[in-house]
Design a protein around this nucleic acid. Structure first.
Lengths: 347, 347
DNA sequence: CTGTTAGCGCATTCAG
DNA sequence: CTGAATGCGCTAACAG
């Protein structure tokens, strides 16, 4: 049947313990012996039994990554970056670690469920990406889960998410508030006064922070914050389209639209064009994140660039213990305003 | 310390076996007993030990997904679809399965390495997405690995990849050849005769099939296949940009560009615009895949829509045994020509 | 429907 | 540097 460590040991004429040592490489073994073992492994086409190994060692080579939606490049880029860092030396049996990507779809229940599942797998680390769901009860439940994971030896890192109180999870947070403020300030500096805002879903830290930044800019410029100019919706193209139609209905005189992210902004652009409005001549449009397609939009999208790849890679390294966590366990990652063709002075 | 099954059993005053049965739900247990066990689980905050469970049962709740690049929505969409189908009843302990996403970056070595790693984890299933690397030696090595996985009880499904000979892996292949043919035929029907082609990387089945379709259309229309009009490059925006510049240098008179996929097409559009050429007035552009951003390009991109989500979901169901494999183990998934604003008759 | 009994395959003490 | 022994936590027969 299936080849086991004992089979390899027999063929190499050593004890199972020695084979284990060779495979894990965390222990001195004579070169000649190692050679013999490796040849036996090769001859028998032996593949280590992960579950057995994890059981005995009380830790696995799995790293969990929680994302809202893996089809969204925002998360895909982060997930890819994390994965590029979790391999390499340090893990069991060659240091190869596998990424378990969990699509929560933004659901609080699934978020908790996946954490339990990862705890069940005795994951070596867990990385939570994207904004947090802002609900006291859920936050408490999450903090509890994260604490228990940490106690069990799982390293926890938050990437693009605010710190979780009562937890010593390392947090790499994005400066969504500052980015939102600079983006709207840019429009106000251009002379816009009626600026529509398409916010993300409610009860999400990302949504709130970006919106707060927007409002801070309005306040700083002495522009009234008309509630009718803000519409909430999911982070997708459709939401951008629909929200823009609604904003135009409520305030046909608006001269600029700020979207919760680039995908939403693309939907907004489509709606404006369908209404016969030119960008930026009639209405300026701005997004957030600077996803790869944003520079190719026509006109190219003004947005706030978030270093998603770098942040994901850093989160991965911290999760692997390859990099020191930032002092205090919290680091803020700043965005960069990218002014492009989609914004100009009002007509 | 950490709570085990035995602790739960003790508290519920039943045997460990009963707790196991309640948790896995694949066995009759008296309602009252189940209640008692569940309460004990809750009281103790017990979480099953996945590795131990997998070791004893000789199978895990992990499903591997091999992708070229998770940051590319093409793969993100498929991965998300697979994940939406792998949960649900049928698995161990609540039927929750986890997706292990493996970024191969198109490297043959990593492809094989990841398969070994998934074999090590005793994955319940493995889904390979995207085109195959066309190298006899590598194909043989892959076939061998897939065979061994299947022998060990891992279900293997190919999604968007041609069947693997000498293997009984189920294959859901995309009709890249047919899509490529229809796309180029569309341009030829519009009157184009000098059509540039930006192909994907060499030695990839997807690249070859799309290119073959293109050539078949040229032949059918009696148009010469000028080798100078084909350029190879990776599946990214940059490649589209650079290749277009090169094509324009070689053949300034060309009136249309067909790209290996939508991302490449976007790069091509950028290059054309930078050269002062209008789309489609001066040069028509066409892509492949119909990724979400393609409809929002300006002008909207003519392309071949591949039902990525549906294909991924189906692959997931087949991998889970929730759906019958297609007869013969192979099904061809067809694309749909989406004619949009980026193509028109030649100037 | 429930309890008892044996391992699953490996990592890790502890000796040597 | 290597071997022998022990147990990780659970599931799956087998009884009852």
């Amino acid at each position: 049947m299936t080849v086991t460590l004992a089979d390899v040991a027999a063929r190499a004429q050593v004890s199972p313990a020695t084979v284990s040592r060779v495979l894990n490489g965390n222990y001195p073994v004579a070169a000649a012996t190692r050679e013999r073992v490796l040849r036996a492994v090769d001859d028998l086409d032996y593949v280590l039994n992960g579950p057995a190994s994890a059981l005995a060692a009380a830790t696995s080579d799995l790293v969990g990554i929680l994302v809202n939606d893996i089809a969204d490049p925002f998360f895909g880029i982060i997930a890819g970056a994390v994965q590029s860092e979790i391999g390499g030396p340090g893990g069991r049996a060659g240091g190869e670690r596998l990424a378990v990507v969990c699509n929560t779809g933004g659901s609080p229940e699934r978020e908790l469920t996946y954490l339990t599942l990862l705890q069940r797998q005795r994951a070596a680390a867990v990385i939570l990406t994207g904004g947090a769901i802002e609900d006291a009860e859920h936050a408490a439940a999450m903090a509890g889960k994260l604490r228990r994971l940490a106690e069990a030896g799982t390293r926890v890192v938050l990437c693009g998410r605010p710190p979780s109180p009562e937890t010593d999870a390392v947090a790499l947070t994005f400066d969504n508030r500052g980015g939102g403020r600079r983006l709207t300030a840019h429009l106000l500096d251009l002379g816009h006064r009626r600026v529509g805002y398409i916010a993300g879903p409610r009860e999400r830290s990302t949504t709130r922070h970006r919106l707060e930044g927007h409002r801070a800019a309005l306040a700083a410029h002495g522009v009234e914050d008309d509630p009718a100019l803000t519409v909430h919706g999911p982070y997708d193209r459709r939401s951008g389209y629909d929200a823009t139609v609604e904003l135009l209905r409520r305030a046909p005189e608006l001269t600029a639209v700020v979207a919760a992210n680039d995908t939403v902004a693309l939907g907004a652009c489509a709606a404006l064009r369908d209404k016969g409005l030119r960008i930026p001549d009639d209405v300026s449009v701005a997004g957030f994140d600077d996803l790869p397609f944003s520079v190719d939009a026509v006109p190219a999208l003004t947005t706030v660039r978030l270093p998603l790849y770098e942040a994901g890679a850093r989160a991965g390294r911290i999760a692997m213990g390859k990099e020191e966590p930032p002092p205090g366990g919290v680091a803020t990652v700043h965005g960069e305003l990218m002014v492009r063709g989609s914004t100009a002075g009002p007509r």
